[in-house]
Simulated assay, not measured.
Amino acid sequence: MNNVSKGLLVLLLFTLGILACRDSSVPENLIEEDEMVEILTELQKTESELSRLNLKSYDSAVVAMDYLRGQILKERGEDTSSYFASYDYYGSRPKEFARIFERVEERLKDLEAEQSEGTIYRKESEGRD
């Protein structure tokens, strides 16, 4: 089991444990499953990049991740309220939540394969001709 799989499994189990007793009614601002997969994929990539920065303080990492989460959601036309409501909703449905994280893991593997083939370029390299 690679690091991505372990990280996703730990996150999934932790979240399921916390959310097991929450209200599971459908929120008005529910993010559709496909969009949730894309958001969680972007968040996982961002968290991975952030961890490589070796920030000295846990607080700094939390603040940075909160800011970056907000930016990702803004770029996708979502807000933190709808994200957390959707996360709680899917988290209260273990089968759906597991399916979402399986799709995130597959998406990350696909991106990793594309990157190793050289078909993905970092954003910083765009426009440097």
Score class of each variant (00 low, 15 high):
Y58M: 11
Y83Q: 05
A113W: 01
E32C: 12
P27S: 01
L12H: 07
Y121L: 14
S60L: 12
G17S: 11
L13F: 08
F101L: 14
I18K: 12
E126I: 12
F97Y: 11
V63F: 07
L12N: 09
L19D: 02
K56V: 06
A85W: 06
E96D: 14
K95H: 09
L108M: 07
R22E: 01
T46P: 05
D66I: 07
L11I: 03
V37P: 05
L9Q: 04
D79W: 05
V63K: 03
M1K: 05
T41A: 15
K123A: 14
E78M: 10
R107P: 00
S51I: 14
D23A: 09
D79K: 06
T119C: 13
D88P: 03
L43W: 13
L68N: 00
E126M: 14
V62D: 05
E35K: 04
Q115R: 15
E38K: 13
S82I: 04
E49L: 15
G17T: 01
E105P: 06
R99S: 15
L40K: 03
L40P: 07
D110Y: 12
L108N: 00
K6W: 05
Q71T: 01
S116D: 15
L111C: 00
K74S: 09
S92I: 04
K56E: 14
Y67F: 07
L108F: 03
G118R: 09
S5G: 09
Q115K: 11
F97V: 00
Y87D: 06
Q115H: 15
S92R: 10
E35Q: 08
D129M: 11
E117K: 07
V62Y: 08
L40A: 12
L111G: 03
L40W: 08
N29G: 06
N29R: 05
D34E: 15
N54D: 15
K45L: 15
V4A: 13
Y83G: 05
S24N: 12
Y90N: 03
Q115T: 13
K45I: 15
F14K: 09
V10Y: 06
F97E: 01
L111N: 02
K123T: 11
I72C: 02
G118S: 08
I120T: 13
P94F: 02
L11F: 14
I72H: 01
G17C: 05
E33F: 01
L73Q: 04
D79N: 12
S57A: 08
Y90G: 02
Y58C: 04
S86G: 02
S57K: 07
L40D: 14
S57Q: 06
E124C: 12
L40R: 14
K74H: 08
E114I: 07
E33R: 01
L16C: 10
Q44W: 14
K109F: 10
E78P: 00
A64C: 04
V37H: 03
L50Q: 02
E35Y: 01
V4I: 14
D66C: 04
I31F: 01
Q71I: 10
Q71F: 02
R103H: 06
D110K: 09
K123R: 13
Q44M: 11
A98H: 12
L111I: 08
A98V: 14
L9G: 04
T15K: 03
A85M: 11
L12R: 11
M1Y: 05
